[in-house]
Computed example of a mutant assay.
Amino acid sequence: MTGERARECFTRARIARLATLDDTGRPHLVPAVFVLTGDTLVFAVDHKPKRSADLKRLANIRAHPEVCLLVDGYDEDWDRLWWARADGTATVLPPAERAAASAHYVDLLTRKYRQYADRSPHGPVVEIQVARWSGWHAT
């Protein structure tokens, strides 16, 4: 799969898996809803229940900003299997930047996910500048 095709897969995907590294180098993987604008992937911390307001993914990004996101398609017909990956550098936007970018990014997220129509994300916003798109497909 070409990098351009991998990027196209992200435009249609509804959920990704976000991989970060903690301060000991141990991987941490969580699902994330996101929006793609140009070569920037964005997600925001929303109202869904969390164990803590101090999210490990945010601490990991602050310590090690290199991240990876993966989207994929599974089918019982293995000729239809595919995955696409985005490798990049993440930034947890500081409050001043979050305020400036928030309206735009939250609007994009709300348009993509109807679940945000009544309760948009109000937590930290993360921008990921994608440096490399890659992927694979069975046929």
Rank of each mutant, 00 (worst) to 15 (best):
V45P: 00
L93W: 03
L69M: 10
G135D: 06
T110I: 12
W83Y: 14
H47T: 02
A59M: 04
T20H: 00
V92F: 02
A138Y: 07
A32H: 07
R132H: 15
R132Y: 07
A117Q: 10
D118Y: 09
F10A: 04
T91K: 09
E97H: 12
F34K: 05
R98K: 12
A131V: 13
A63E: 10
A59T: 09
R12V: 08
L69Q: 00
L70H: 05
G123F: 03
S102D: 15
D77R: 12
R51F: 11
G38F: 08
G123I: 06
A100P: 01
R7S: 02
R5L: 15
H104M: 11
E66I: 02
W78V: 13
H64F: 06
G25C: 07
A131E: 15
V35P: 04
E4K: 08
E76N: 11
H64C: 05
W83G: 08
V30E: 07
R7W: 05
A63C: 08
L21Y: 02
E127T: 13
L21S: 11
Y105A: 12
D46P: 09
P31S: 09
L41V: 15
V45C: 07
A13V: 02
V92D: 03
R111Q: 14
D39R: 00
G25Q: 04
A90K: 00
A86L: 04
H28S: 11
P124F: 08
E97N: 12
Y116I: 01
F34Q: 06
V42I: 13
R14G: 12
R12F: 10
